[in-house]
């Protein structure tokens, strides 16, 4: 028996935002990310049961990851195009409370752009969506050590890029 509307609605409220931003790191535009988000929820709606899942968050992100990878294979997307939205997504609207944080946030968003995709997606899952390394490894179907090391490379690179302004502000 497929999921009911309340079950699906709960999944949407819990994960849709994070899934959308994760999918957007692959598609680099909102329309395609929305289509993939729709595909994720169509697959979720066809699930017979959700209770058997040990880790719901890791499961839905892995489902989204697999859908995004399939999409990339079909589309052979040009990675060097359509950077505008991803900058908006990762930079976001500046809601920082003070000018220093606003400045650091802007640099942070720019620094995220410079990360390789494999590191940026993991940094996003860890920093924004709060996934553990185990969950990230499950999501991307990679070894735990690989997930941790890619995250470490990402943090090292962010630290290098942000050090001037970070040390100035702290």
């Amino acid at each position: 028996m497929p999921l009911t509307h309340p079950e699906l609605e709960r999944l949407y409220d819990a994960h849709a935002s994070g899934l959308f931003h994760y999918l957007a790191t692959f598609t680099k535009n909102e329309a395609d990310a929305r289509d993939l988000l729709q595909d994720v929820f169509i697959k979720l709606a066809r699930l017979d049961e959700l209770d058997a899942l040990q880790n719901e968050k890791a499961f839905v992100f892995r489902l989204a990851h697999n859908i995004a990878i399939d999409w990339l294979r079909r589309r052979k997307v040009r990675w060097d195009s359509e950077e505008r939205l991803i900058k908006e997504l990762e930079g976001g609207q500046q809601h920082a409370s003070d000018p220093d944080t606003t400045a650091l946030s802007a640099h942070f968003a720019t620094a995220m752009q410079s990360l390789p995709d494999e590191q940026r997606t993991i940094a996003q899952l860890k920093l924004w969506d709060g996934l553990t390394f185990e969950e990230i490894a499950h999501t991307q179907n990679i070894p735990l050590n690989t997930a941790a090391s890619r995250y470490r490379y990402a943090i090292d690179k962010l630290r290098t890029l942000l050090r001037p302004i970070y040390e100035e502000l702290t």
């Binding site: 609605e9 959308f20 929820f41 709606a45 930079g91 976001g92 500046q94 809601h95 946030s105």
Partner: peptide, 29 residues
């Protein structure tokens, strides 16, 4: 960095799409 992610609000239209996405998902299922 984690505190910055909380400060930065990402543009998020998923709430506006909710009804449409859920309706289509249930229909196709």
């Amino acid at each position: 960095l984690q505190s910055l992610t909380r400060e930065l609000r990402r543009p998020d239209a998923t709430a506006q799409w909710k009804e449409e996405i859920l309706a289509r998902a249930l229909r196709e299922a």
